[in-house]
């Protein structure tokens, strides 16, 4: 649905500042109906990247294809029309203060030349969809941050796009509003069959809503993949970012051997412990780690300290691997 091929964006030198390579040869592809995330620290080029998708920024080189149309080859007028099928939501909402909530939702319809009556009914329908049916006449200044973003989402959906771009859509919101907006995004994706590309600097957002993610750093793709795959990779920048490696507690000096185990729905910690303790008779304690729900599944990384039966450890590791468990021995006290 969205396909970037070797896209580069170089901002020319301005004044004393030299040229800036914001996006440096990025290729990525998002399937129809996929909820994809692009994560990275600030300055990694995420915001430029999302603007390349609807050509708010023209790439210096490379191609951008959305819904089968190569936008980078279209004339400006066609690009303008193509943008109507790509909704966009911004960090600071960017609603017009001079219009009511309904007026804001009608704005893109007006631009598309939709008649007044149809605009009205569509705005009502969309505000209902985002749970703000009773605030149609409110001005943005009278709405909370979360409500403003809901209106902005309704506005982005007004012309029935098949792609939705979200640029740090929850970064200006508190935790409760963030959860509400993310749930809404997920719901409209499911109900309307949208393809969503979401830019964020927060891993928690990716974990909450994304099917896949791209890790960006200094304008380059460092790692990418479907979360379900990434999380079962033993070591990758993205899996480490999603599930931080557990740190052994202060008892690290107490001896024993450390095992780092990745648990999943398929190989939950109960199975791992059952094997180690029940079947192999090792003495095991949990030295650190966490298990959480990501992309609808349970994933976690545990650090286990084996204090008894260390001589049988290599055998145990073999056994676990044979069962499909991701496990590795860690040098005591030092993880990473």
């Amino acid at each position: 649905m969205i396909e970037l091929k070797d896209v580069r964006k170089v901002f020319p030198a301005r004044g004393r500042a030299g040229e800036v390579v914001a996006v440096d040869g990025v290729s990525l592809s998002v399937e129809r109906g996929e909820f994809a995330g692009v994560v990275g620290p600030s300055g990694s080029g995420k915001s430029t990247l999302v603007r390349l998708v609807n050509l708010l920024e023209r790439p210096t080189s490379g191609s951008v294809t959305v819904d089968g149309r190569v936008l980078t080859e279209l004339p400006a007028d066609e690009v303008r029309k193509a943008r109507r099928s790509i909704g966009m939501v911004f960090q600071h909402f960017e609603l017009l203060d001079s219009r009511t909530a309904a007026g804001n939702v009608e704005h893109p319809l007006e631009l598309a030349g939709v008649g007044r009556a149809e605009r009205r009914s569509r705005a009502t329908e969309l505000l209902d969809l985002v749970g703000l049916g009773d605030r149609a006449d409110a001005r943005p200044a009278q709405l909370s941050g979360g409500q403003k973003q809901r209106v902005a989402i309704a506005r982005a959906l007004a012309v029935r796009p098949n792609v939705l771009l979200c640029d740090e859509a929850t970064s200006a919101l508190d935790q409760a509003s963030t959860a509400g907006v993310l749930a809404l995004l997920r719901r409209v994706r499911d109900e309307l069959g949208l393809t969503v590309l979401l830019i964020t600097h927060e891993m928690a957002v990716v974990k909450a809503v994304c099917d896949s993610a791209v890790l960006l750093d200094r304008g380059r793709v460092v790692d990418s993949g479907r979360l379900a795959d990434v999380l079962t990779r033993e070591r990758s920048p993205l899996s480490d970012a999603l599930l931080p490696a557990p740190v052994a507690d202060a008892g690290a000096g107490h001896g024993g051997a450390l095992l780092r185990v990745t648990v999943t729905d398929r190989t939950p910690e109960t199975v791992v412990l059952q094997t180690l303790i029940g079947k192999l008779g090792l003495a095991v304690e949990i030295a650190g780690g966490s298990v959480e729900t990501v992309a609808g599944g349970r994933y976690g990384r545990l650090l286990l300290r084996v204090t008894g039966g260390v001589e049988g450890l290599d055998d145990a590791v073999q056994r676990l691997r044979a069962d499909g468990v991701l496990v590795e021995r860690v040098t005591a006290g030092v993880d990473r």
Binding site: A82, H92, L95, S98, H107
Partner: peptide
């Protein structure tokens, strides 16, 4: 008038004159 509002209108497929007419002038009124 915040540049982001202009950008939002452009992302909806607004022409430049639409931006002046529906964003810049009303917001600055």
């Amino acid at each position: 008038v915040a540049g982001g509002k202009v950008e939002a209108a452009l992302s909806m497929g607004a022409r430049r004159r639409d931006v002046v007419r529906t964003v810049l002038l009303p917001e600055a009124l």
